[in-house]
């Protein structure tokens, strides 16, 4: 079981998304850059030129390395690119949340959690 200290100091959200989603979420005020010297951002802008390795690395960094992130938001079409990583990610903290993006409508069938829900209820 996750102990209390495990999630007590998780107070940030992280975003992996296309430019519009990231911009919007940053406008809401979730952006955070850790103080120098490491200057780590808690967001990653992905476009068609970003390769999957970079996305994976960011996902890895947000989910396992950083201990101050409570929720990882990821655009669904980006999640699709590293789908196997998302599907094998079963930890409770940080929570990985797939969000819709502007150009890609939300498809509940692809969401790893919703798929688990459906499988559990045999639908």
């Amino acid at each position: 079981m996750s102990s209390q200290a495990d999630y007590k100091d998780r107070q940030f959200l992280a975003v992996i998304g296309d430019e519009d989603s990231v911009t919007g979420l940053l406008l809401a005020g979730i952006g955070h850059v850790t103080p120098p010297p490491d200057n780590q951002k808690n967001f990653l802008v992905v476009d068609s030129k970003t390769d999957n390795a970079a996305i994976e690395a960011a996902f890895e960094r947000f989910t396992t390395e950083r201990k101050d992130i409570g929720i990882v938001l990821i655009n669904q079409h980006i999640a699709d690119r590293i789908r196997y990583r998302i599907d094998t990610y079963t930890q409770a903290f940080p929570t990985v949340l797939e969000i819709p993006s502007k150009d890609h409508p939300y498809d509940p069938e692809k969401d790893s959690v919703l798929r688990r829900v459906r499988r559990l209820f045999g639908e």
């Binding site: 959200l13 990231v22 911009t23 940053l26 952006g31 955070h32 850059v33 951002k41 967001f43 409570g70």
Partner: peptide, 12 residues
């Protein structure tokens, strides 16, 4: 916006 983001206003 990406450049001016420094510290999270919205926290959990």
């Amino acid at each position: 916006i990406q450049e001016s983001a420094k510290s999270a206003r919205f926290r959990i």
